[in-house]
């Protein structure tokens, strides 16, 4: 242990406070990353796809559909043109148009032909389709993508606001704890000050301790956060494009560990990095806050 030249920080509650803040910040970051990933995935998929609907009463439906598929395949930037099977169309429309009959058909309705065109860039498919088959309806999924993007951005902004609020509350809590500790050791701080200890010497010792306690709190928060994040990730996995390996049923501690490890692979790398950085960020915030609080307090002394 280094030789003392200034009183340290007395606070048993600081690690607990920081652990709670880390837990909250981690959950907010997980929510943020989840929303971001889902929104980007959905918007990305929608941005690069166009749905074409050809009414069932179109004359020479089959021939003209085939001709349109050939035309689309030759169009620059179009990567694939996929015709949905009648079964797929029925499944797609079932929620809006009613029950599928026992034979697998929607009762009393003739179904349109639905083409899904995947493309890169933004080809003007509306013009191509209109020239080849004027009866067809072109649904630019890009518009949905933009809406999803807007929704995603709002949710991301809310999540960032939550993270910022948590950081602000953490800073306030650490600040008050440090101030209480300084007040409790006021006499000792004054003694070392009047013996010639520099302000930074005094504040650095307290800040160093605050950083250590915050780091410990951050690590503890991360420890308690991991099962919660794992559980949430397993719930969200079906919605993710990178679902990864399926979660194993947790029966023994080995399968629980294996399941936890599998779920870790499902989590986006960015989220893992952010969560890993939380204890370090907590330590930095603790250090900075303690430095500021102590330096400001010391300004009262001559």
């Amino acid at each position: 242990m280094s030789a003392p030249v200034s009183p340290g920080l007395r606070s048993g509650s600081l690690p607990l406070l920081v652990a709670l803040m880390t837990l909250l910040a981690g959950l907010s970051l997980a929510g943020l990353t989840g929303v971001q990933t889902l929104a980007e995935g959905w918007a990305g998929a929608a941005r690069n796809a166009t749905t074409i609907e050809i009414p069932s009463d179109t004359p020479q439906l089959e021939d003209r559909t085939r001709a349109l598929i050939q035309t689309l395949n030759k169009t620059p930037d179009v990567t694939t043109v996929r015709e949905l099977s009648p079964q797929q169309v029925q499944t797609l429309l079932a929620p809006w148009l009613g029950q599928v009959s026992d034979s697998g058909h929607l009762t009393g309705l003739s179904l349109p032909v639905v083409l899904i065109v995947a493309h890169t860039g933004t080809p003007d498919l509306g013009k191509v389709v209109h020239e080849a088959l004027p009866e067809a309806v072109v649904e630019e999924d890009r518009r949905w993508g933009e809406r999803l993007n807007g929704l995603g951005s709002s949710l991301v902004a809310c999540a960032w606001l939550a993270v910022s609020l948590i950081a602000a509350i953490a800073v306030l809590s650490v600040g008050m704890t440090v101030r209480r500790s300084v007040m409790a050791q006021r006499k000792a701080v004054e003694i070392v000050h009047f013996l010639g200890a520099g302000d930074v010497t005094i504040s650095s010792r307290i800040a160093g301790r605050a950083a250590l306690l915050s780091l410990a709190g951050g690590l503890a928060g991360l420890f308690f956060l991991s099962p919660v994040i794992t559980m949430l990730a397993r719930k969200l996995a079906p919605f993710s494009h990178d679902a990864g390996p399926a979660a194993l049923p947790a029966t023994t501690w080995q399968t629980m560990l294996a399941s936890w490890w599998n779920t870790l692979h499902v989590l986006p790398r960015l989220l893992l990095e952010e969560l890993g950085a939380l204890p370090l960020i907590a330590a930095c915030l603790g250090w900075l806050t303690a430095q500021t609080v102590v330096l400001v307090w010391l300004r009262r002394l001559p």
């Binding site: 030789a3 000792a188 013996l195």
Partner: peptide
């Protein structure tokens, strides 16, 4: 006296020299 109660007598006495950066 103004001695720091949490420190030993030695640490209290050594403080002025430590603040001046003297070797341990």
């Amino acid at each position: 006296y103004r001695l720091i109660g949490e420190w030993t007598v030695f640490d209290n006495v050594a403080l002025p020299l430590r603040l001046r950066g003297a070797s341990e």
